[in-house]
Design a protein around this nucleic acid. Structure first.
Length: 479
RNA sequence: CGGGGCGUAGCGCAGCCUGGUAGCGCGCCUGCCUUGGGCGCAGGAGGCCCCCGGUUCGAAUCCGGGCGCCCCGACCA
């Protein structure tokens, strides 16, 4: 129940976020440090995200699989960069059934190694390729500092893994999946994202190239919201994933992996939320519409509720996710605030006056207050609702894009970059050297988020060292 | 691992300094009344006061030790 007001976003963005996640009942803290319980409302949101992605994965030929949670410790050690990257954050099982294990098992931090191991058995011929797999699961990384949805010890995600005969095919797959994430973010989550390439310092442990989609949160900080890795032949060599080509020659496969996690829920909260609470994009919202009935006397109550129930059935028939708030003992005003806090895109207020007119009051979540309310005829309500939901979906995206543009600066001078990253993104020329990247990070706390795929303006000079630079990169403070 | 905060009713907290009947607000339950922007009244239920040890006639309170969680930095999706 929402008994107290949230801090405003400008007062304390971090505290606003923490309290909102709890109050909206998306998630709660687990008894173990850094772990999270996803509550029904949060999981419903995740299920909608899963469906939106899963149908895209299936449409591009991927199949779902389930690999085990436990991985032999030695597997992690087989790929040099992988072991360096992940060793510090592994959870290790050393005892099973009361006995010390001969070989410790790690709880998967990601599944490249065990999948590589199995592929080496399954893949023999070019006819076996490509292998296109995905799994929905959870993984464990022993993070030092955690935050609900954004970084927890265990988190839910999907990890896609593919193996190909050629470099070109694997590279195309890597980019295809990045495009899918972008499409999902923009069209379903209403989050404008910048797809781009990571620096060597920021790339996945074991990848040749890492791409990501980067989004700007409501406080101007960046959040990496999905990644796609071109793994080259690194894992194929470590696990001997080989095939015979048409000429009868033994070749190593080229592999990819790509993932998107419940972290994207954090992005949805921080991109669209306002001081009243969540604002969920209609395409992913667990409830797209809530009907709040209003009545005094008993005759009114039955009249209003009968109408409301019919309305609910009609909307549900039109495939609109709708709920009717029949809770006794809470006033309509209380319910308005409650559902606003929980981010339902559209509210229908139905009272005796409306029923008499055969109309209802519609209130858009993205336009708070009385001015956002309109009266609509009951006769064609499903059509009106569908139109409004589409408008809200678009409006959320446009607002977020406008915000990002307003807080992104083409910083040419280093001083401009320093100022820009205080409140948002700096889009600056970078020579590509790790030294410049490290210095910028050290001096501004901003990291190189990505080199956007979309470039314009030709070459320039590095914002830090002044040497020639081919491309511009996004620098920002990040979650 | 460094810095800070906190552990007392489901939640938020007071009480601790100065030891002596465990409290307040919200929520919850019952009834009445209300309901178009976080209603009101009355009654009620609910406690290993984080754990272990010490001091004391007596510990939520004092002393020692431990554990846990949250926030801020370094590491990361």
């Amino acid at each position: 129940m929402a008994e107290e007001k949230l801090p405003t976003r400008s007062q304390d963005f971090s505290e606003w976020y923490n309290q909102l996640v709890l109050k909206a009942q998306l998630a709660d803290y687990a008894p173990v440090r850094g772990c999270m319980i996803v509550r029904p409302y949060g999981w419903a949101l995740w299920e909608n995200i899963q469906q939106a992605l899963d149908r895209r994965f299936k449409a591009t030929g991927h199949q779902n699989v389930a690999f085990p949670l436990l991985i032999p410790r030695s597997f992690i050690d087989k790929e040099q960069h992988h072991v360096e990257g992940f060793s510090p954050e592994l959870a290790v099982v050393t005892v099973g059934g009361g006995e010390e294990l001969a070989e410790p098992l790690v709880i998967r931090p990601t599944s490249e190694t065990i999948i590589g191991h199995m592929w080496s058995k399954w893949i023999q011929s070019y006819r076996d390729l490509p292998v296109l797999m995905n799994q929905w699961n959870s993984v464990v990384r022993w993070e030092l500092r955690t935050k609900l949805f954004l970084r927890t010890l265990e988190f839910y995600w999907q990890e896609g893994h593919t193996a190909h005969a050629t470099r070109e095919e694997a590279e195309a797959e890597t980019r295809q999946m990045l495009d899918i994430y972008t499409d999902f973010a923009v069209n379903d989550a209403a989050i404008p994202v910048i797809p781009g390439k990571k620096s060597d310092a920021e790339k996945f442990a074991g990848a040749d190239v890492t791409y990501s989609i980067e989004a700007m949160m409501g406080d101007g900080k960046a959040l990496q919201s999905g990644t796609s890795h071109f793994l080259g032949q690194n894992f194929a060599q470590a696990f001997e994933v080989r095939y015979l080509d048409q000429k009868g020659e033994l070749q190593h496969c080229w592999t990819t992996s790509w993932g998107l996690s419940t972290r994207v829920i954090g992005a949805i909260i921080m991109v669209h939320g306002d001081d009243q609470g969540l604002v969920l994009p209609p395409k992913l919202a667990p409830y797209q519409v809530v009907i709040v009935p209003i009545y005094k006397a008993d005759e009114e109550k039955s009249l209003v509720l009968d109408t409301a129930r019919k309305l609910k059935a009609e909307l549900a028939k039109a495939n609109i996710r709708v709920t009717l708030d029949e809770r006794e003992g809470s006033s309509p005003g209380w319910k308005f605030n409650d559902w606003e806090m929980r981010g339902v895109p559209l509210r229908i207020e139905l009272g005796p006056k409306d029923v008499a007119k055969q109309a209802a009051v519609l209130a858009r979540r993205d336009r708070p207050g009385r001015e956002g309310k309109i009266s609509a005829s009951l006769a064609d309500l499903p059509v009106t609702v569908e139109r409004l939901l589409a408008e809200i979906q678009q409006a959320l995206h446009d607002k977020a894009l406008a915000f990002r543009k307003a807080n992104t600066h083409d910083a040419k001078m280093y001083d401009e970059l320093k100022t820009a990253v205080e409140t948002g993104f700096a889009f600056s020329y970078w020579c590509g050297s790790a030294e410049c990247e490290a210095k910028i990070k050290e001096e501004t706390r901003a990291t190189m988020r990505c080199i956007p795929l979309e470039q314009s303006g030709g070459p320039g000079v590095c914002v830090y060292c002044g040497k020639p630079a081919a491309e511009r990169a996004i620098f920002a403070r990040a979650y």
